[in-house]
Structures are given as structure tokens and as C-alpha cells.
Amino acid sequence: MKAKIYAGLLAASLAAAPAANATQFTVEIENLSNAIYYTPFLVAAHPAGTSLFSVGEAASANLQAMAEGGDISGLVADVNGLGATVVENPAGGLLGPTASTTFDMNTDGTSNDRLTIVAMLLPTNDAFAGLNAVEIPTEPGTYTFDVPAYDAGTEANDEILNGGGAPGVPGMPADPGGLAGAGGTGAAMADANTTVHIHRGALGDTDAAGGTSDLDSRVHRWLNPVVRVTVTVQ
């Protein structure tokens, strides 16, 4: 699926070299997970050559604030500084398992031809879903992008539910689904890879009142993709 998308984008970009970008399109964000909730999404169409994160590079402080606590205010300032076309919190709060949100974007009169979408996974320490500066399709049609979960690399995945959401504070801020346990002793020390990378997944355990993790390994795990983004160009 993924290879097909990239191949398709390559073919499109080769065929229609400097064509005008779609200025009006519809975006659907779908939560594919079983028990993960997303904090408010930041959606930005922005110029090529800019991005909010790069794999293998340390997270910015603003990305860290989003990944650890769901706070997108710093990233909003970042993309506004780029002259981006911005949609904040399209779902009007948390986006629950298998739920979706759909909205329109209009980049008329801008050079905003790349699309970035980010939000934190709850309950996790610093996991976020990220569509990273993909080229916005120009030809009419429906385009699907499968989005993986990244680890910001900024916080140990201790999987302890203690309300910790501020940057640098250990622990997970919340489990909106109410399926987590308590009393975990800590599932992991600091990440081996402290740059932005693909999240290795939640560990969890089956002891709701103890064990190492407050997550339930039977419900809180996921496999990529965790979000599906569908862009429709009329």
C-alpha cells in the first residue's frame, strides 16, 4: 500500500512537473486503533522544504510539548511563522478509537503544497502520529496516506499513568478510555534512541494493580498504521 502511494506520487510528480497545486481539498483523519485516543490534531499545509520533525533528529521543544502532553500551541506558532494554512483541533477535542473527522482546506494564493498532521497518542508517554510534509496531490482524485506512530525520543516509556504531561515530566497524562491500571513500577528507562523514530509499541502487562506497566497489553498495543489520512481533490 505504502509503496503504491509513493510510486503513485512519483509518477504524478514526473508527469505534471510544475503544475499548479490543488488549492481546495478535503481531508479526513481516521483513528485506526483499538484503544488509543488522539489529542487535538494540528493540520498544516505549508511550503516545501519545511517540516516540524525529521526522523533521526532530536525533537524540537514544541514537538516535545505536543508528544508528551498534547499541547500544540507551540507548533501552531511555528507553522503560522511559515505562512501555513492551519487547521487546529478539527475533531473538537479527542478523537477516539475508529472515529474520524473531515474538514476542508483552501490554500488558494499560497505556496503551501506540503501537508503535515500531528497529534499525541493517549495513553502513552511521548508517542505521536505524524504525516510529515507529504506533497499535496494536484490531480482530482482520492489519495490515502497510512500514518505510523513515532516516538519523540524525549521521555522514557515508563507507562506509568500519573498525569505527567508537561515537557520533561515523567509519566502518561491520561487514559481517556479508562482501561489502564495503576501501581506499575515502570516499564522502561530512557529510550535507546533519543531522536524521533518509529515507536516500538506499548508493552503493557496483564496486572491492573501492579506489574511494570499501567497499560493493559491486551488492549493498549497497536501496530502501524495508526491513522489513515484521506485527501480528496475535486
Binding site: 505510523p148 522502561a188 535507546a192 518509529i198 509499541g201
Partner: peptide, 13 residues
């Protein structure tokens, strides 16, 4: 192997 060695796809870019 520990929790640190677990992985999900994709594993390389």
C-alpha cells in the same frame, strides 16, 4: 532482548 529492542514497521527509511 528487552522492551528497548522491540520494533514496529517501518524500520528503515
Amino acid at each position: 532482548l528487552s522492551n528497548q529492542h522491540r520494533f514496529d514497521n517501518p524500520v528503515s527509511m
